[in-house]
Simulated scan of single mutants.
Amino acid sequence: MPYPYGKPLKRYPTEEERAWLWEDGNFVGGAMILLVSLLSFLFSIVATALYTGGVLTGEDLLSETLGLSNTRFLLLYGAVYTASLGLPTLLPLLLFRKKLPRFRGRPSADITVNALFIGIGACYLANMIAGVFSGILEQYGFYLPDAPDYLEPTPQSLAVNLLVMALLPAVLEELLFRVTLLGTLRRYGDGTAVLLSALLFGAMHGYAAQSLFAFLVGLVLGYITVTTGNVYIAMAIHFANNALSILISYAQLHLSDMLGGLLAALCVNGLLLAGLVLLIVAAVRRSPLLRMPRRGTLRAGTLAGGLAGTPLTVLAIVLLFLRAVYLNFCT
Rank of each mutant, 00 (worst) to 15 (best):
Y5I: 02
K10S: 15
R11V: 04
E15A: 08
L21Y: 00
L39I: 08
L42G: 06
L42Y: 10
I45L: 14
G53E: 07
G58S: 04
G58I: 00
L61G: 13
L62R: 14
S63I: 05
L68F: 09
Y77M: 03
T89I: 14
L94K: 10
L94V: 12
L95D: 03
K99M: 11
K99S: 12
R102K: 14
R104D: 10
G105E: 07
P107Y: 06
A109T: 14
F117G: 10
I136T: 05
D149T: 09
Y150F: 15
E152C: 07
L167Y: 02
L168D: 02
L176Y: 02
R187M: 04
S197W: 08
S197Y: 13
G202Q: 01
F215G: 08
V217M: 14
G229D: 02
H238W: 03
A243D: 02
S245Q: 12
Q252K: 15
L255Q: 13
G260Q: 05
A264D: 13
A264P: 07
C267W: 12
L276N: 03
L278V: 08
L279W: 10
V281H: 11
R291I: 14
T297F: 02
R299H: 13
G301N: 06
L303T: 07
G305C: 06
V318H: 07
A324P: 01
Y326Q: 11
C330H: 15
